[in-house]
Each structure stands twice: as structure tokens, then as C-alpha cells.
Nucleic acid binder design. Structure first.
Length: 418
RNA sequence: GUGGUUGUAGCUCAGUUGGUUAGAGCGCCUGGUUGUGGCCCAGGAGGUCGGGGGUUCGAAUCCCCUCAUCCACCCCA
């Protein structure tokens, strides 16, 4: 049993599941194209330094969740734990050129966490990045696009949480202010938060511990400490969201766990998910890329495929399934089987899906197979048909059966509802 | 990393206070039709009871270890 299981936190996507994946991915590509986004594919493997610098050395992801190894050239490589850093590396040139870029990506990400509902070690994200525009409207448009995507999929019941972290310049000073305000109250904070206090005081804000929340709630509004520019920028983002018709909630507690965020941060949560209720998350960022002078700035979000599919399932949204082959070819005797192989190729060349029996078992078992795989037609050929150059074509749904020349079969099966 | 849950046939699961040869449903195969699916009937194949160790006359059942699973903490998608 254990030998047939993949490593912990990974799983197989089987043929019965992949049509739903393809559907979600194709809807994503269609919706994002409406906003001028093209697909980018970056390596799953990057230099470790990219993530250490990009995501931030004090984040949980970098501190304890990365799959890192040394390759034969002595380089430290890491399986990407998120998509933005790699995309920023790839787009650093575009950003520097001043032209900007709008891209989306999809693929596996890796984090060494303990698996739970909606959390895997290999999971899949769909993400988008708008690099090169620093307009507040870009932040809002990103959220609007996410909303359109979710709505197109038929997802209902989600909430959009929005907040600001202030400019990156604000971050340091506000961080100090938070420290000052929290230090005297450290005794009332949970153990995790006490250690976070020095390392990353922001994270205290979104601690789920009720004691910590009480402490945080009693604190003065932190946005008051932001610069005037940062505050008016956030006001502008909200005005744009209104213009886009996006229904959002401002959530002062939302800070997110990656260091590269500045200004707008947002999250989409859904109750159909369990303890991990974040369906998507993102915001405006400034990502330091090794070898590049200035951080690459942009706005974007990432969304969890597995969680998306969980929500779709919880909402009973109808998902596509694998299309069965149209025709099943049954053979009696080795000569008929050979003739079927040739006929199968002719039908496929004409675009008709065919499964041909590859060994001449009893007709009964071949018919059972035709039924099980959901073929629309079962075509039967035995020695008798073979000598007369005909086949018996059975329409499975109504059990009607006709005998017709082999040359007429394509027209017969293709003629019915194309 | 911490805590709990579960692990028996391909799948979903029964299995009594430890007691002969470990069961069911679904699926699969064969037959009931000289060459005809679904429904029905009969038969059949398929199991190191996750793995290792221990207790015992005897372990799927009790104990320890280990691996895996799911869930929660944590973190985030």
C-alpha cells in the first residue's frame, strides 16, 4: 500500500480529475486575456537566493518550508514555494525597460508543511502579475479580474478582504511603532507572537489567538501612522474598486506573510474550505531580485487550484468529465481484429474517437466494455461480416443495430449529431 | 515541528470478551444466448489484515516501535 502512495503531501491527478483542471485553467486563460495578460512559464527550480531575498529571510516560508538542495555544481537550488519571485526574475528586464508586462502563470509550488485540508506539499497555483504600473487603479483592476474569474467559474459565497501595509518606506517606521506599542503588552501575547515581536511585528496583527486579537484590537489604528501619501493611495484604491463594482471589506488585521508586499494587500476567503479558508491572496509588491539594482514592483495575486476545486465541489458546480470515445470496435477472430485496427485508424484520421478491442475475447465481454466506457456505437465484425465487407453497427442508447458496408461506417457514425 | 484520527480484497467498509479455513457490497472474470452491453441469476479470481517486534497455547483484535493517511495547531494558496 505504502509503495503505491506518492510522497506525503503530493497526489496524483487522475484522468477522471484532469478535465476539471483543464477547464479551470482554460477559463483563467480566457478571462486574463480579456485584460491583456499572456502566459509565462518559468522554471520550477530557482536559485535559493532568489527566494531568500525575494520573499524575505524572516518569513516562515524561507525559514522552514523550502525544499532546498545542492546540485552537482555546488549551487543551492530550491523548488519554488510561490510564483512571484521567479516571475519577477524573468521580468526584471521588462520592468527596467519601463514597458511593463502583464502575465499569468500556473503550475506546481512546493512547501514543506504538514498536510491538512486544502494544504499540500505540492500544490498548484494560478497567479497573475502586472509589472510596471504603480497606479492604484492597477491594484483595483487586479482584484476586479480575480472577481471576474471567480464569477465566470460560478463560485459564490466568497469574501474579499482588503488592507494596506503602507509604503515600503513606512514599513520600517511603522514596524518600530508596533514594536513600541506591543512590547509593554508582551506578557498577554501568545508564545509565537512574543517571538514575532522582534522578528516581524506585523504578523502579530493577524494572529488567530483570541488573547492576541484582544491586544491588537485595543491598539490605536495603525493606518494613522502611515504617511499621508500611503493613506491617500489606499483611498484611491478603494475608489477604483467602487468604480469596478467590486464588493470588498476593509480588514485592518490582514497583513499577509510575505515580506515583499507594500501598500495594498488582499485575500479572498471562502467558508467551504475548512481551516485553510484563503482561496486567493495577493497585493502590491516590491521584489528584490539578486543581480538587479532596484526591486521589481508590481501587483498580482495567486490562487490555489486545489482549494478552488474544493470550493467548486462544495458548491456542486457541474464540472466537465472525460469525453468517452464515440466508437468501440469489437472483433471476433484475429482476421477481423486486424481489419478493425486498420478501420480504427481511418476513423481517427477523420476525427472520430475510437477504442478498438485489441484481443478477440468473447463478444459478450467486448460489448460489456463498449457499454462501460460509454461508447455511442459498438461496431461488430466477425468472420461473416469480414467476407462480405460489412460491419454491424449498434447504437448503444437504443440497442438498434444495422448492417452496413464498411465504407459507409464513417458517414453513419459521424452523421449522428456530429 | 506538536497533537489527535484512521490503516482489513482494485474501491467503500464489516469483523463480537483474543479462538478453526478473515467476510460483505461495488468492480473484475466466466457461464446462463453457436456472435451482442445495461437489469437479473449462478459460479470464480483476488488479501504479507500498512510494516517490524513483543505478550499468548493461539493476535486483524492486546502492548511497543515504525511508516502512511486524514484533521487540527502553525502557516498560507
Amino acid at each position: 500500500m505504502a509503495s503505491v502512495s506518492p510522497p506525503p503531501g503530493t497526489s496524483d491527478i487522475l484522468p477522471c480529475d484532469s478535465p476539471a483542471w483543464r477547464w479551470v485553467e482554460s477559463v483563467a486563460a480566457e478571462v486574463f486575456l480579456l485584460y491583456g495578460y499572456g502566459e509565462i512559464r518559468t522554471p520550477v527550480l530557482e536559485f535559493t537566493e532568489l527566494f531568500q531575498r525575494g520573499i524575505g529571510g524572516e518569513t516562515d516560508i524561507v525559514r522552514k518550508e523550502m525544499y532546498t538542495f545542492t546540485d552537482k555544481g555546488g549551487r543551492s537550488l530550491t523548488l519554488r514555494p510561490e510564483g512571484t519571485a521567479g516571475v519577477m526574475r524573468a521580468l526584471a528586464g521588462e520592468a527596467a525597460s519601463g514597458n511593463g508586462a502583464r502575465v499569468f502563470y500556473l503550475g506546481p509550488m512546493f512547501r514543506g508543511e504538514r498536510p491538512a485540508a486544502g494544504r499540500r506539499r505540492q500544490f498548484h497555483q494560478i497567479g497573475v502579475e502586472d509589472v510596471g504600473s504603480d497606479s492604484p487603479a492597477a491594484d483595483a483592476e487586479s482584484i476586479a479580474m480575480l472577481v471576474r474569474f471567480l464569477d465566470t467559474l460560478g463560485i459564490a459565497g466568497y469574501r474579499i478582504l482588503v488592507n494596506t501595509r503602507g509604503s515600503s518606506a513606512d514599513a520600517a517606521s511603522v514596524s518600530e511603532i508596533l514594536k513600541e506599542r506591543l512590547k509593554p503588552l508582551a506578557d498577554s501575547l501568545c508564545a509565537d507572537c512574543q517571538s514575532r515581536l522582534d522578528r516581524n511585528p506585523w504578523r502579530v496583527l493577524d494572529c488567530k489567538n483570541t488573547l492576541c486579537q484582544a491586544v491588537v484590537d485595543a491598539l490605536p489604528d495603525i493606518t494613522e501612522s502611515f504617511s499621508e501619501d500611503s493613506r491617500s493611495r489606499f483611498d484611491e484604491v478603494k475608489r477604483c474598486l467602487d468604480a469596478f463594482g467590486v464588493d470588498y471589506e476593509v480588514s485592518p488585521r490582514l497583513v499577509r506573510g510575505l515580506d515583499y508586499y507594500a501598500h495594498t494587500v488582499f485575500e479572498v476567503v471562502h467558508s467551504g474550505l475548512g481551516a485553510q479558508d484563503a482561496l486567493a491572496g495577493g497585493g502590491r509588491y516590491e521584489v528584490p531580485v539578486p543581480g538587479v539594482k532596484r526591486p521589481v514592483a508590481g501587483v498580482g495575486f495567486a490562487l490555489g487550484m486545489e482549494r478552488l476545486l474544493m470550493v467548486l465541489e462544495s458548491l456542486s458546480v457541474e464540472l466537465p468529465s472525460l469525453d468517452p470515445p464515440k466508437v468501440y470496435l469489437a472483433a471476433l477472430g484475429s482476421d477481423a481484429l486486424l481489419a478493425n485496427l486498420k478501420m480504427a485508424e481511418a476513423l481517427r484520421a477523420a476525427g472520430v474517437g475510437v477504442v478498438a478491442s485489441l484481443d478477440a475475447r468473447s463478444l459478450k465481454s467486448q460489448m460489456r466494455t463498449a457499454n462501460r466506457i460509454g461508447a455511442e456505437f459498438a461496431v461488430i465484425r466477425g468472420g461473416d461480416e469480414l467476407t462480405r465487407g460489412v460491419v454491424a453497427c449498434r447504437t448503444m442508447s437504443d440497442s438498434s443495430q444495422v448492417e452496413l458496408p464498411e465504407s459507409d461506417l464513417l458517414e453513419f457514425v459521424a452523421g449522428r449529431n456530429g
